[in-house]
Design a protein around this nucleic acid. Structure first.
Lengths: 354, 354
DNA sequence: CTGAAAGCGCTTACAG
DNA sequence: CTGAAAGCGCTTACAG
């Protein structure tokens, strides 16, 4: 029968004395090393562990061994569905390595982000996944600490800081080019906050595509927002308030696309008939919007697997790793009939051909 | 100038020797106790901390003090937007107490959930917030460990296990009653997975309301699904496949409501004109669906604040804490014109009057 | 007000 | 193959 120990926690000492060995041997058994243990001894130890219900204290282990079996992930806002989906995959992946995850949510606050990172470093995380809320990420303290870090941002890699990212600018260019390929000439954009790196890259990609096509940019159709649904809603209303509105729109994330669809619907603007839309990033949800959202996408599970692997096989000079992206075609861009639609009205294809 | 220390980490020892004191005094300064320190000494220590860039090792602190300044949160799936929103609030709230959060995502897997909890307990979390993927939560190991735990599930509290929840059954009854109050008599339901506690409570509430109104239950209009968007989509199609379909529908979460709206749209069913809908839980997003979703809601920030507070002021006999809920009225239920709509087509009110 | 020292529960050379 | 012991970086009675 298992003993109920409410008072003191069972420690290695208890197991050792019950098994009639030293605590060192208990360690060797639990960790399968670094010294060999006779089979009979091992059995006695395992038996003692079962009898006592012993559970190793990870904190003590971390202090003694220097590895906490913990990763940290820092994000601007976990309630963003793209980030949440990514976090889900990261958690599944790190679990495969026996690691748990410390989650830091900066709430889009740059100063708080710094505190969070410091807190995670002080807790001896074995590695950090970092999506910054600002274009000046706090890599200084991480590098000084020597902790492996993979940034999922559009920054340039530095020594000691790996970067895993898609080519945001190119992807934005392709998304815009897709709209242009439908014959739309008047194309606007709803951007994210200027302080964020990916906002600027996506804006720049849109500018590139317009320039490549020899099209003029109408400043009134460059509407800044904040990556939220409400921001997208407001931006759409603002766009409609102007004298005339564009024929097509590149919206820089899924949440804003969701909000803007609501606004267009309320104002009687039909998507894609009156105004076509292509979005960026996002989740499963885009397929269920009305109309379903054509959007640039990233393979989230691959990103997570690669990020965790980079931490595990860490080399300070790992550098830059690029993620492929693809255009997930739904109804919102007004693709001609005959495009490969599934039950939920969308198909996907690589955009290499652009 | 700050010394760059790449080799060895700065420890309390370094600070102490630079300040010409003992490590104990450094502790007293950093922790503001438990012994007083002369002002001059304190200054020397603070100066030494600045000079060395010393950062306390939280792992060592946890081992010595017994408190890790870490909470754990265990959820079925962080990519669910309601859960993600809740996690966001929990993170903001725990940060106010100087705690970081270990996040465990079981991926709806009951066995994995157990491993995760064990992992968090071994890491000496100061408390646990727990949403189970199954109606048999793993409270045994938590209780044995003596770790404070707040369950956000519809379980009954036990000694050592606090429960913070809304009255799901009553809320579901009210949601259904709202549909009935519009005069609809044929009301169906799309439920969550039977293994989960809240699925059954919500189903039961719907049954209650139907019974109270003296209405017969059509088994074909009780469609089981799995709380996902795709599940809701499929369930809606299944409902439409039968001979006839109900006039109204209670859909047990927001994700499924999102999926079903897509299905109804594709099949030419107008919501709410042909079929009215009330949802359950969910996020900001419900307001941006087309039509906007009428839904039972919970005050997420309050839940988070209360949960963290319960952990902080822990008493093993804390018991049950009920969360109020309200009905957030959008367009999907077909409320008569004149209801208090905002810009995004919704209003909210308490449901105490039901 | 300050310091020497035990202790938190592990890991891991080192010696046998 | 096994054990005694130092050490990880802190906290905190205890004695001065």
């Amino acid at each position: 029968m298992v003993k109920r120990l409410t008072q003191r926690r069972v420690t290695r000492e208890d197991v050792a004395s019950l098994a009639g060995t030293s605590v060192a041997v208990v360690s060797y058994v639990i960790n399968n090393g670094p010294r060999p243990v006779a089979e009979a001894t091992r059995e006695r130890v395992l038996q003692a562990i079962r009898q006592t219900g012993y559970q190793p204290n990870s904190i003590a282990r971390a202090l003694a061994s220097g590895t906490s079996r913990t990763f940290g992930v820092v994000v601007p806002d976990i309630s963003n569905s793209f980030i949440a989906s990514l976090a889900h995959e990261l958690l599944q992946e790190s679990m495969r390595y026996g690691h748990v995850m410390l989650l830091g949510d900066s709430g889009d606050d740059c100063q708080r982000e710094r505190e969070i990172i410091q807190g995670l470093l002080n807790r001896q995380v074995d590695g950090l996944i970092y999506i910054s809320a600002d274009r000046h990420p706090h890599t200084d303290m991480i590098r000084r600490n020597g902790t492996p870090v993979v940034m999922l941002d559009g920054v340039e890699p530095e020594p000691g800081v790996s970067v895993l990212r898609m080519n945001e600018r190119q992807a934005a260019r392709e998304a815009t080019a897709h709209l242009l390929s439908h014959g739309y000439r008047e194309v606007g954009i709803i951007t994210g906050p200027a302080r964020m790196l990916n906002s600027r890259d996506r804006l720049q990609g849109w500018i590139d595509a317009m320039g490549n096509a020899g099209l003029a940019i109408n400043p009134q159709w460059v509407v800044p927002a904040d990556y939220t649904r409400h921001g997208g809603y407001q931006a759409a209303l603002q766009l409609l308030a102007g004298p005339g509105y564009p024929r097509a729109l590149f919206i820089c994330n899924e949440q804003m696309a969701t909000g803007s669809l609501r606004a267009f619907h309320q104002q009687g603007i039909r998507v894609p008939d009156d105004l076509a839309i292509v979005g960026f990033n996002g989740t499963d949800q885009g397929a269920y919007l009305l109309p379903s959202l054509t959007s640039v996408r990233q393979p989230i599970a691959d990103i997570a697997a690669t990020a965790i692997r980079l931490l595990h096989t860490w080399q300070a000079d790992a550098g830059l790793h690029e993620i492929r992206h693809y255009l997930d075609v739904g109804e919102s861009c007004g693709c001609p009939a005959g495009s490969p639609l599934t039950e939920s009205g969308r198909g996907k294809y690589e955009t290499d051909n652009y």
